[in-house]
Design a protein around this nucleic acid. Structure first.
Lengths: 214, 214, 214, 214
DNA sequence: AATGAATGAGCTTTCATTCAT
DNA sequence: TATGAATGAAAGCTCATTCAT
C-alpha cells in the first residue's frame, strides 16, 4: 500500500490516512464480528465516520477487503524483513529469529490471527485472496529454504533436506496460530516456542546447542 | 449427528436422510462459494430441492451451519477412531497411522479443507464454533499425548516432552492443510508426509528405523 | 409477453397475473411521477404488495422497465391489429380506421402518452428501447405504406408517393400525441381528428368524399 | 437566460460564461446518458470542473435542469425569430422558411432531439416543464396560425381552416423529430422535408407552385 | 470562485424466514 | 412433507448537497 511518502500533497496524505483508518477499522470489525458479518456501516462507525465513507475511498466492499488483506500481508512482510535485517549473519540465528518473530505477541495475537483466518477461510472461493497469500508464502519459503540449506551445508547432517525443513517450519507456525485461535485458554506462547525450537534443536544439534534454549 | 440407527421409524430415517442430503449440499456450497456467499437458496438448489426446505428441516440458517460443522467434526472423529482401531498395538505405529490419516486424500482434500477453514475463519466471532472445535481438538491432543508419552517411556529419549511432541504434531497437520489450501499447485502429499515422518524419525530414532520410511 | 394461455398450470397463471399487476402499477407510477422518479417501492405499494416483490418477479428494475415497454408496445399492437381486422376491405377505409384509432380515447390518453414519451425520452441512451420502438414502427409503416400504395393505384393521383403519405401520417399522429401531452388544456380530440382527415381529404379526394367526414 | 450583455460587470460576465458552460455540459450528458442517469458529477466532469461546481452556480440539480430546458427553448426561439426576420414578406414563403428551419441539421439533430424528448418525457410529472414548453408552443402556433390565415385569405381555398393547418404543421414537425430519434438509420432529411412540403403544396396549390420544390 | 472530502437520505437488491397451498 | 410465492429487514451503493479549505 502506498504509505504516506515525501512527494505527496497535503490532500493526498490526508486521503491516505483516511484509507488506513478505514482499513484499521475493517480489521477490528473482522476480528470482532467475522468477515461475513462485517458491514460497511460497522466499519464506518468503528472509524467514527459516516455511512458512505467506505465507498468514497474504496469504491466497493470487495475492494476494501482486498486492500485490507494486502495491508495485512504488507504489514507482516515489513515485520519479516525488519527481523531479517536485525538478525545476526549466521543462518541458524537468522532462522531462529524468524521463527521467534512469528510467535511474538504483536504477530501471534488472537485478534490479528482471527483476521488472517477469516481471509484464509475464503481463499478457495476468492482466487485473488489465494494469489495474494500464495505470493507472499512463496517468498518466505524461499528465504527459509536458503537458510536451511546454508545450515545443512555448514554442518554434518545426513538425510536432511532443506525443503523438508522448510515445509515443517512453515506449517508449524501456521498450525500453532490455529491452536492459538481455537484454544486460546490452553495456548501458551512458551510452549509454542518450545515446539519450534525443539524441532530445530533435534535436527540441527550442531547449530543449536541446548544451553541456548532461552 | 444421529445417524440412522436401528430403533428409528421409517419416517425418522427418511427425515434423517434429508438432513444429511442438505448438510452435504451445504458442504459443497461452502467449498465452492465460501461461507459468506452461501445462501439457503444455493443449498436447496444444490440438493435439488425447493427454497423453503432448509428452514423446514433446520429451522434457521445458523442451525444448519452448526449442524454442518458438527457433522464435519463427527465425520473426522469417526475416521480418527477407525484408524486407531485398525492400527497395531505399538504406540509408535499407532501415532504414525494417525499422522498418515491426516494426509490421506479423503481427509487432506482441498474441497473439504476449504470448509474447515471457512469455519475456523469464524471461530473467534462465533463462540459455539470454537467450542465444537476445541472439544474435539482436546480429545485428539489427549490421545496423541498418551501415545507420545508411551513412546518416550519405552525408549531412551532425554529432553523430550510428550506435550511438546503433541504440540508439534497437531500444529504440523493444520499447517500442512493450510499450505494445501493456499498453494494447491506446489502442494505434494508425499512431501507433506515427509515433513511429518522426518520429525518423528528425528526425535524418536529408536522407534522409527529409517528403512520403514515408505 | 406470455399472456395467460391454455396450457399453463394454475401457478403459472397466478405468476403471470402478478407480473401484469406489477407492470400496470409501473405504468401508473411512470405516468404520475415520471420514469426517473419511479422507485421499486412506488411500484410495489401502488400494487399493494411488499418491497421485494418486483425483484422477485423481474429480477431487476431495468428488466421491469423493459418488460413494461414491451407490454405497451404489444398492447398497442393488439389494438392496431384488432382495428385492422374489424375494418372494411377498402384500403381507404382501412387507413382511416387506423388513423382514427390512434386518436381514440383509449389510445390518445394523456396518462398513457406520458409513459410512451417517458420511454421515448430514453431512446437514445438505451439502445434496447430504441430497438423495440423501431421494430414496431417499421411494421406499422409497412402496413400504412401498402394501404397508401393501394389507394394511389386505385385512383387518379399524380405526384403523390405512398412513402411520403406514410411519413406524413405517422408523424402526424406522434405530433398530435405530443400536443396532447404538452397542451392538454387546448388539445381537442375533434381538432386532432380534423388535422388527420383534412390531410387525407386533400390528397385523396376521390377516396374521401367530403360528406363522410363524420 | 440572460446572455452576457453590455451592462454587466466583468465578474458577472465570467459567471454567466460558467453557467453556460455547465448548461452545455448538461445537454451533452442528457444526450449521451439520458436525463435520469445524468448526475451532477457527470455534468461537472464533462465541463472539466470539480464536483461541487453545479450547486455553486445553480443551487440545485432541479434548478440546473430547469435552466437547461429554458436555454433550449430560448435557443430554439432565437433561431425561430431569426428565421422569420430573414424570410421574405409573403406569408407562404415565411411559412415554408419556418418549416424548413425545423428540419435543418442544426435543429433536427439527433443529439439535440434526444434532450428535447428527455424533457418532454417528464412533462406530465413536472408541471413547470410543461409550462415552459406550452408557453413557447402557443407562441409559435399563434405565428403559424396568422401566416396560414393570411395565405388562406389571399387565395381561393374553400373548406380549409387556418387552425387545422397549424395543427398539422406543428404536429408534423414533432412527429418527424420523433422518427429521427427512433429510426435514425432510415430517417432522411429530404424525405422529411418532402413530407412537409407535399402537404403545403396539396392544400395551398396557388401559393406553392410545384416547380419551387427545391 | 473553486475544490473535493464528507455526509446521509434513499435507492436497488439480496435473502432468511414465513406460510398458504 | 414439500413447495415456492411473499415478506420485510438489512445490506451495498449512489449521489445531491454541504462545507472547510
Amino acid at each position: 500500500m502506498a504509505a504516506a511518502s515525501a512527494n505527496m500533497t497535503r490532500r493526498e496524505i490526508a486521503k491516505e490516512r483516511r484509507r488506513q483508518q478505514l482499513i484499521d477499522a475493517t480489521i477490528k470489525c473482522i476480528s470482532n464480528k467475522g468477515l461475513g458479518s462485517t458491514t460497511l456501516s460497522d466499519v464506518a462507525s468503528e472509524a467514527g465516520l459516516s455511512q458512505g465513507i467506505v465507498n468514497l475511498h474504496f469504491n466497493s466492499k470487495d475492494n476494501l477487503l482486498h486492500e485490507t488483506l494486502k495491508f495485512l500481508a504488507e504489514d507482516y512482510d515489513a515485520e519479516f524483513m525488519r527481523t531479517l535485517d536485525g538478525a545476526p549473519d549466521e543462518p541458524a540465528a537468522r532462522l531462529l529469529a524468524l521463527m521467534k518473530m512469528d510467535l511474538k505477541p504483536a504477530i501471534c495475537d488472537r485478534r490479528k490471527l482471527a483476521v488472517w483466518f477469516a481471509f484464509w477461510g475464503e481463499v478457495k472461493s476468492v482466487p485473488t485472496y489465494q494469489k495474494i497469500c500464495a505470493t507472499y508464502d512463496d517468498k518466505y519459503d524461499g528465504i527459509v529454504l536458503d537458510l536451511a540449506d546454508a545450515i545443512i551445508r555448514s554442518g554434518s547432517y545426513a538425510n536432511i533436506e532443506a525443503q523438508t525443513v522448510t515445509d515443517v517450519l512453515s506449517s508449524l507456525t501456521d498450525g500453532l496460530w490455529l491452536s492459538c485461535l481455537i484454544n486460546p485458554k490452553s495456548f501458551r506462547r512458551a510452549a509454542a516456542l518450545n515446539a519450534v525450537t525443539s524441532y530445530l534443536y533435534a535436527i540441527f544439534p550442531d547449530h543449536y546447542p541446548l544451553e541456548s534454549q532461552h
